[in-house]
Design a protein around this nucleic acid. Structure first.
Lengths: 333, 333
DNA sequence: CTGAAAGCGCTTACAG
DNA sequence: CTGAAAGCGCTTACAG
């Protein structure tokens, strides 16, 4: 029950430093003209009072919050923690902070539920997430830049920064062609994304061009457990492929598990497997999965850069950006 | 370059609804007395103007931000996404939003870097993370409640909500004793935490009481790759244990991989393995790991409840809470 | 139940 | 370079 010790304000600092409140303010606004001498006085006073400018008061007059909303993925896919880390660090280095937008954005019909837009975020980043349409519309309504990171959901019209999935698909096709595979499948998940379509097209077009054979497309789910049955079907009977290119590492590992443990196949001899993402588990002794590394750091840097520029220029034009991907050769292809 | 369409304010709504600005305000403050009739008028006006109360302006007068700072883990351990999801949802349901505190909290010595405390968070949750001492001190300085979730770093004095690790340790000991194991080891990571100590003590004390034998304690790292060598040492020579209880599932899977792939051991016949956390990978066909499930949902609910109560009562007393854990029997013990 | 007014802690023209 | 003053969009006593 400690009494609420009031935090010190610019007025307190002003009094202690013997200057006006506006001067204190200027000291903390980059680019304002203040003499070095008073700057030192103010810093000293501020430090002794443990003063922090109140970001809310500031935002009220500057009309920007230095806050960006972050939509994060629903699934617990291992790369995502890294993503959050990268984006939030990148934001911080640019003077912004991230506020989480829960997966289930409240529709706020009756104006009773608190809404993320009460916080006047300057922009929104949808990080490897399934972008909610109503969120996108709200951003449009309020003229707030929004960008999709690493994944773009089909049919959405927002800006995005993604890996070059088409090229990854092509490279996968080339690799399998080198290994003389002809019966191959592309194994995908259940969320329709542009990123996946691109990867699929790149793979199929290139493989056809190279070999004349058409890869089979099999739709599973991104969830390990429910992907098992489609994978079993895939490996059963005479249609069993020589190689599988998977939409995610998670799927690739499910394939490896089923192939080895239930079908007694040896990888890569009997079956070649290629993943996508390069999640930490790909390096586990039991998998050593050949996969594509997405440059998440670069994706984070670029997406933050783009939205910050858009904030500054009050511009919400759609921008699309692609970043190259890198094949990581391990032991499954 | 679209012109910045100004968001509508309570004044705009008031004009349209034909009431005073204070009345509009009351409509959006729960518990204020407004007649049903005017409430309807105001809601209608608000809706047509797409009005959202400005949380910053509100926070300026109420002196609370409805924002809680969230420290999240540095490692990409799979449970953590779920954690973030759970906590942020729980917060939202209570009218709060989460702002991320990057792992590297800026020390802000020269008052040039923006600091999370500029946002006047009402509380801080350190989620499965390594709590930074300076962060803790800042919270104390500003009288802000802070709580550790699921993990407590040794030597920290903040509140916490954790699983009952001691009991988990005991249960692991009992299980291994049932299996007549006598040569057992407790395999731990490299970050000193109270949660780990408790688990270790519970395991050792109970195992000694039951069998008279002392488990060996081996320190590895929480990172898979660097844990490999200590694990190899552990399995080499005549000291090779009959069973290993691991501080995390991640470690347990590293043990399984090394044991099977490099030492040709069969699990559980040659070596029993027990993990801790119940991460998604434990259910993979290749592992089917026996482990302990932490009730993360409950941990999230309780920690949010505690800090919200503390915010309301201006109380930052230390509270400690423990939640039971559940043994998930699968195929490794 | 409702309105007019003060105040929350800042920033930023406007003078000097 | 610096100060006095207005204003950002709210909430909340204070009257009525």
């Amino acid at each position: 029950m400690s009494p609420l010790k009031p935090t010190s304000t610019s007025k307190d600092v002003a009094k202690l430093a013997g200057v006006s409140q506006s001067t204190v303010s200027r000291v903390f606004v980059p680019g304002s003209s203040v003499s070095d001498k008073t700057k030192q006085k103010v810093f000293a006073a501020a430090k002794s009072l443990n003063y922090r400018p109140n970001a809310f008061a500031r935002s009220l007059t500057t009309n920007e919050s230095k806050l960006v909303g972050l939509v994060f993925p629903d699934a617990d896919y291992p790369i995502h923690m890294q993503t959050l880390q990268l984006i939030s660090t990148e934001l911080q280095q640019n003077g912004y902070a991230a506020v989480l937008i829960p997966w289930q954005v409240d529709v706020n019909d009756d104006y009773s539920v608190p809404n993320i837009f009460q916080y006047r975020v300057d922009a929104v980043i949808a990080a490897s997430a399934t972008l909610n349409t109503s969120l996108y519309e709200e951003c449009e309504e309020f003229n707030i830049p929004i960008i999709q990171y690493a994944r773009v959901v089909e049919g959405t019209k927002s800006s995005y920064v993604i890996s070059d999935n088409y090229e990854a698909g092509q490279q996968a096709a080339q690799l399998l062609h080198q290994h003389k595979a002809t019966q191959v499948v592309y194994l995908t998940g259940d969320v329709p994304t542009l990123t996946n379509d691109e990867r699929q097209s790149g793979f199929i077009n290139e493989f056809k061009a190279l070999t004349g054979c058409s890869p089979r497309i099999i739709e599973a789910t991104y969830d390990y457990a429910s992907a098992l049955d489609p994978i079993r079907d895939m490996l059963t009977g005479e249609h069993c492929p020589q190689a599988v290119f998977c939409a995610t590492d998670n799927l690739a590992m499910a394939v490896m598990d089923v192939a080895r443990l239930e079908f007694g196949l040896t990888i890569p001899q009997d079956l070649k497997v290629i993943g996508f993402d390069n999640i930490p588990q790909t390096q586990w002794l039991n998998y050593q999965l050949t996969t594509f590394r997405q440059d998440f750091q670069r994706l984070a840097r670029e997406s933050v850069k783009i939205i910050i520029e858009q904030i500054a220029s009050h511009n919400t034009d759609r921008v699309k950006m692609m970043v190259p991907v890198k094949l990581i050769q391990r032991n499954t292809a």
